[in-house]
Structure formats: C-alpha cells, structure tokens
C-alpha cells in the first residue's frame, strides 16, 4: 500500500493505493471536498465486487443498504504525503526515506553520507525512533541540521509527523533531506512520507534471505543498500544469493554494496545522489 510506495522512480508501482487518489490532491486541506469526489464513480464496479465476495457472504450480509466507498484506507496519510511531496518539489529538494531493521547501520550510513557529500549536497536529516535522541546526537556529528521525532509507541513514521518535523528544520540552502525511519521492516512499508526515493538497507550480518522474509518492504525499495560490507567475510556473507534475492523482489532498484565504516562503496553512492539531485533540479517545477 503506502500509496505509490514511495519512490518517485518513473514506472514504479503505477497501481499503488494512492493511484486511486491522484486527482484529489489539489488544494483541499480536509476531507470535506473529497467526500464528494468519491460519491460519483462508485456504482460502476459494484457488481464485480459482489462477485468477488459471494463466498464470504454470511446470512446477515447482503440484506442491507450498500454504500460504495472505494477509498484507500490510508487516504489521509497519502494526502499528507502528497502535500509533503509538493512542498519538497517546490524547493528542489531530493528526499530519501531510509528503512531497515534495527541495527542495520542506518544512522552510521546516513552520518557518513552527509559527511562525504559535504558541500556538494547540503543535507538535513529527520530521524525517527520510539525513544531517545541518541541517533540525532550521533547524526549531528556530521554537521548537518537534525530533527529527532520520537514516536512513543508508534512503530513507523507517518507523513504528518514529517510535516511537523519540517517546521523545526531550516530548509534554506538544503539540497537533500534524509529521513531515517524507525528501525522496522514491516510497518513503515505502508506509509508514504512524500519521499522521492525509498532506500532499504540490508546489512551482511542479517542473512541473505532477509528480503524473502519481508517481501513488502523490499518490494517497495527504490534503492537497495547492502551495508557493513567490511564484515562480509566474518559473516560468511554469500553475495550471489543476497543479490539474487534482492533482484527477485526489487528488480528495478539499483544496489549499492558499501561499508560506511571503511568508506568502501560510499563514493558511488554519493555520486548517485548527486545525479539524482541534478535530475530533480532539472525537473519542470510545474511537473509537466
């Protein structure tokens, strides 16, 4: 779900949840107008859905008034994510949503990315965790402006949390915004934040079959990063298997194998970001 699944790569996931909603996002802030938008087209698909559901009808079902809805469940998040996306586009910002299990090395990876990009791309970071601002403190070592979101018990970031965090971040002069999501390979897959690229990390210590265990997350990846490559030998990391598994789920995603600790592979990654940012700057601001 997560609605276009995030990454703004052309051709990806044309049938995400929010595919149903593209035309709703002009300027309304609240659900008022779009309730109306939804009332017209409903009945067309009605019979089709009934057929799908015949088996599951209980005796009480089917005897009552039917209200067609056909609305994405995370419609509100999708709408706010699109608003974020418009806000980012207007500023020519490249925005990454970085996801992985806890402990895959997101924070170190982001800190080193910021440090190595230096003046080539001025970067800000939003980081989400259930508790503590330890990651924000580590990230500030890179010199970048950092905003910490503590989600309490919520296991993922939502578009609204990002919108709120943006108010605390001075975006002036920034080229790149990196959002470090809560460490979790399940729930964040469902929530579009308005990013251009969804970056999913797999560290060599996690096992080559991780993508097969968490298909929705890896399937939604716009970019896959294999992290902690410096530990590959110690972990008996099987490169061919890992890459084959990534390809099976995310065939479109470019893969970067790197070690933030030694710096190996980081140049290619940074160069990729610079090219992506150029593409964003070249984009027609009117989206034509």
């Amino acid at each position: 779900m997560c609605q276009e699944c995030g990454c703004g790569l052309p051709g990806e996931n044309p049938v995400g949840i929010s595919a149903h909603h593209h035309d709703h996002d002009h300027d309304h802030g609240h659900s008022h107008d779009h309730q109306h938008d939804h009332d017209h087209p409903h009945f067309h698909t009605h019979s089709h859905d009934e057929a799908d559901h015949d088996h599951s009808h209980g005796d009480a079902v089917g005897q009552h008034r039917v209200l067609e809805v056909r609305q994405a469940i995370l419609e509100k998040n999708d709408r706010l994510a699109e608003r974020n996306r418009g806000f980012f586009h207007a500023r020519g910002l490249l925005v990454l949503n970085v996801l992985s299990s806890p402990g895959s090395g997101k924070t170190t990876f982001i800190r080193e990315t910021v440090r190595l990009l230096g003046k080539r791309l001025k970067t800000g970071v939003i980081v989400g965790d259930l508790a503590t601002d330890n990651d924000a403190q580590r990230l500030r070592e890179s010199g970048a402006p950092v905003v910490q979101i503590t989600t309490g018990t919520v296991c993922h970031l939502e578009a609204e949390m990002v919108a709120r965090a943006l108010k605390q971040l001075d975006l002036k002069g920034l080229d790149l915004l990196i959002i470090e999501n809560v460490g979790n390979l399940v729930c964040p897959a469902s929530y579009d934040l308005g990013e251009d690229l969804r970056v999913v990390l797999l560290s060599v210590t996690e096992g080559e079959d991780k993508p097969l265990k968490y298909p929705p997350m890896f399937q939604s990846a716009g970019v896959a990063v294999v992290s902690k490559m410096d530990l590959a030998t110690a972990c008996d990391y099987n490169r061919d298997t890992a890459l084959a598994n990534l390809r099976r789920l995310a065939p479109n995603a470019p893969v970067f194998e790197l070690s933030a600790k030694t710096g190996n592979g980081m140049d290619a990654w940074c160069e990729f970001l610079i090219q992506q940012h150029k593409a964003i700057k070249a984009r027609d601001p009117l989206g034509a």
């Binding site: 779900m1 997560c2 699944c5 051709g11 990806e12 996931n13 044309p14 049938v15 995400g16 949840i17 149903h20 009605h46 859905d49 079902v61 089917g62 005897q63 009552h64 008034r65 039917v66 209200l67 067609e68 809805v69 056909r70 609305q71 994405a72 469940i73 995370l74 469902s190 929705p216 399937q219 939604s220 390809r247 099976r248 065939p251 479109n252």
Partner: peptide
C-alpha cells in the same frame, strides 16, 4: 525476466459498507 511494473498487490482499500 524480472518485471519492472507492479500492477496489483499493494491495495488497502475500503470497498463498501452495508448499513441500516
């Protein structure tokens, strides 16, 4: 060959209700 285009499978949709 790997497909470059997902056409369905990410849906999370409220389809309809039955009410009185």
């Amino acid at each position: 060959r790997p497909s470059m285009e997902l056409r369905a499978g990410r849906e999370m949709e409220l389809t309809s209700l039955e009410v009185d």
